[in-house]
Design a protein around this nucleic acid. Structure first.
Lengths: 140, 140
DNA sequence: TATTGTTATACTCTATAACTATA
DNA sequence: TATAGTTATAGAGTATAACAATA
């Protein structure tokens, strides 16, 4: 890679994300999940049962994209759709017992991958990195 | 966005990159460039005249992808292809006078966008962020 | 009329395979 | 035979438009 490119923040962020993505993907592979699907599980597994559309908004994706995500997780037996009692246009998507167990174990595996990625930094520097990134993405 | 998601490093990196991307895109818009095209200009404008394939390797993209990049820059009048003197299978891609000028001014605009993005951090924290990211993406 | 989920379709970005010309 | 550039094509990932059911 050209030295002219590697000094720029865009390059640093892009490649940091890329490397973490690879570590995370490998860590989740035993669960038959990728990082995106785990994020969907996290959203579906937290808080009240929500409609697909609410879940899509929380993930920042289109509702049509959500259909495919839920399809994939349902094929794996991790979630189930059922019609909303009060509003039958909506689907409530709930985690199965297997889905809940997979969520817990896969989350731990993902956290371990993050720790491995951050290993070259001291604990204070790792904490500061998180803090700085959080500051930067806060709307202003 | 779900609070469960925002604490993870993958989320922080992804959204930091996304916000910087948006700032950079806006800053480069007056030059008719995006961040990717500027990166291509940087590579083509540095060092010796190289073949398209060498440039592609330095950018980490396929040579077929490089064709489209050079096509776009050539249409804008920023670069010119000419056959390599010693090996006529190769193209030497050189910046035009306009291309060189655009490279300089667009680079400054991109740097300014980075500064704007980093503005919420003190200078030492911004420096430390760069340093930590550089440490993390160093092959180990 | 408006909204939810769904399907069909299209668009972006990138790579793989095949072709031409040169070596 | 092998390589550089090109073209055609395909795949992943996502969105937009249109439709059926429901509100």
């Amino acid at each position: 890679m050209s030295p002219e490119l590697v000094t720029h923040l865009g390059y640093l962020l892009k490649h940091a994300q890329l490397q973490l993505f690879e570590l995370t993907t490998a860590a989740l592979e035993p669960f038959g999940l990728d990082g995106r699907q785990l994020a969907v599980l996290v959203v579906l597994g937290s808080g009240e049962p929500a409609s697909q559309q609410e879940a899509a908004q929380r993930l920042g994706v289109d509702r049509t994209t959500m259909v495919a995500f839920v399809d994939a997780l349902e094929r794996k037996g991790l979630v189930e759709r059922r019609p909303h009692t009060q509003d039958r246009r909506k689907n409530v998507v709930e985690l199965t017992t297997t889905g809940r167990d997979t969520l817990h174990r896969a989350s731990k595996a993902r956290d371990a991958a993050e720790q491995e990625f951050l290993a070259p930094l001291s604990a204070p520097l790792a904490r500061q990195l998180r803090q700085s990134l959080a500051t930067l993405i806060t709307p202003r």
